[in-house]
Design a protein around this nucleic acid. Structure first.
Lengths: 334, 334
DNA sequence: CTGAAAGCGCTTACAG
DNA sequence: CTGAAAGCGCTTACAG
């Protein structure tokens, strides 16, 4: 069932059917009969033929490090949302935190499947830069600030700054830091910088012995704070680069007899769904990941339709959510 | 840069280049020179032309209700994993729990983009059935048992049965139920049935007043148990259809002065990442969603390569994870 | 307003 | 082992 069949059944030429389907320079009479035939047959043009002919896929490639991550899935939700009323579909590529896979997809997408790419990388390497320098399709980097390339990202520095400043205001004088590797420009470097700047502005001394680099898991947070406790260092505040790290850390502190927030005021960044439902509920910073997705999609759409000509960077703000872990413990418990 | 350009540069015909790229019935000498040209130019065949010619997309469509859900993302992880070493890519369609969108994608995929579909629906309607009855591509239903159609699913009934039986063994005599709507065959109907069967087998009486239908959110769990408490009904056990419901419920009980597990032994289904890190940690049933993804992908691959000819249903087992919420409260707390 | 023709880039019988 | 030819289904100048 192709366009010629439809044309025959409708008693017109394939050109006319095509015109009906596209621009629509067709007489009302023929429109009627073509519509009828299409309705009856359920005909739909074959996209691969259209793609070949039009050099257009109507698909956006979305490369993400891990789909089973709350932040990533919200980015994807945001993209989906923005693309909803367009003709574009999403082609999702999951790299499983594997930089090699990421590069492969970038190269695959350059000649295939998609009209543009939204890339959420954890680590933007020289190789990334080299490929994107001469990429033949528009690319938007979601959730990371990469100067010189189109990107949409959170102000991680501000997020951390606000959380740590809040801890200081709550009376914490020795605020420990549980973060992730600096190579991660957003969650790693950015939040660490915010932590340091907040300490400085609050007149507190930075202490390398109170800082630990862990990874993104709950367990890693648990172990990280355990080491700190075992080392004998004293702290009355704790800032964690992510909610998951904080969840693990709080759990460990509880089993170690340290009370949150009484002994250790704690805050993190992420505002994951559970952060509100934890006990104590977690003071954390809400990052608008869905906005990142929406704005990234919007930006790529701009490049695709020619509206946006020059490169651009969009930085989004965040919102501190003060909860029990830095303030007070509800009565019911004691 | 197309196959003819490459052919000219290599001094051969396009047919030979094509053969080099595919079957490979080419002399060693020409292979060498073609390889050289391709390496230098970075040429890659245009997929849309191949798609048109071969009537093959090398893409699996994956329709999911919500990507920002832990179980769904694990299904997607599993699919990605199984497809890793094949030529297939994933085309992800996010329906946002909108049945209409689900139908639209199903229809879209019938003539476009993909060779086969993995569908994770919450609600399998008559419309679904009607479309899939005469679908022209293989479809596998992930995470739901739909007799007559290929599917891979959890034994939800068994999962609930084991959890509730465990609560009874821990001494709970009045086990409340916080579940989701029966239309959801898996999380709703299946787990409810398991709950009822477990009560019966434990010699406990089912009590409609101890059952509440809520939705999938933490808040809904909170409110559900609040209503139950307000109604004055007494219960010393609680089974929740999902972890999130349990998280909300436990939180509510805490604020209401009910101790978990001392006053109310609690269990759920899901084994989400946080369930281990909650306080008390949550007794729950681990469902192998990644396995569902892997097996669904495997099944569709079987249909696509012709290995699998007849329809089939695959039911996966689960694993009860006993934790604090049904057993004991660690010392550190009291 | 409409149709015949050409062509997008690829692959695969077919003939040699 | 290799190349010329035909064709996948569509769209868009072009001529009328």
């Amino acid at each position: 069932m192709n366009i010629s069949d439809i044309a025959k059944m409708a008693g017109v030429s394939p050109s006319t059917v095509s015109r009906y389907l596209n621009n629509g320079y067709v007489s009302e009479e023929k429109k009627r009969v073509i519509r009828k035939v299409i309705d009856e047959t359920g005909y739909a043009p074959l996209t691969s033929a259209q793609n070949l002919r039009n050099r257009k896929m109507n698909v956006i490639g979305v490369i993400v490090p891990k789909i089973s991550s709350e932040s990533i899935s919200h980015i994807v939700d945001g993209i989906t949302d923005r693309l909803r009323d367009t003709d574009y579909q999403i082609f999702l590529a999951n790299t499983d935190n594997n930089v090699k896979k990421e590069i492969e997809y970038l190269e695959l997408f350059e000649n295939n499947f998609v009209d543009g790419v939204i890339l959420s990388a954890t680590d933007f390497t020289a190789k990334h830069r080299q490929i994107l320098k001469r990429y033949n399709k528009p690319v938007v980097i979601a959730s990371q600030n990469v100067p010189g390339f189109p990107c949409v990202y959170n102000d991680d520095e501000e997020a951390a700054y606000n959380a740590v400043t809040h801890l200081a205001q709550q009376g914490a004088g020795h605020i420990a830091y549980l973060g992730v590797m600096e190579e991660d420009l957003s969650a790693g470097h950015g939040r660490h910088m915010g932590y340091l700047r907040a300490l400085a502005d609050a007149g507190l001394e930075a202490d390398k012995n109170l800082e630990k680099i862990v990874d993104f898991t709950i367990y890693s947070g648990y172990n990280g704070i355990q080491e700190l406790i075992d080392s004998g260092e004293k702290f009355d505040g704790l800032f964690c680069a992510t909610d998951n790290i904080a969840i693990g850390a709080i759990n460990c502190m509880r089993y170690s007899g340290l009370k949150v927030p009484d002994d250790v005021k704690t805050a993190a960044v992420g505002d994951s769904v559970v952060s509100k439902a934890l006990f104590p509920s977690l003071t954390t910073v809400h990052l608008y990941y869905d906005e990142i997705g929406r704005e990234s999609a919007d930006m790529i759409l701009g490049f695709l339709d020619g509206t946006a000509k020059s490169t651009r960077q969009l930085k989004l703000s965040s919102e501190l959510c003060v909860r029990e872990s830095s303030t007070f413990m509800p009565d019911a418990v004691s």
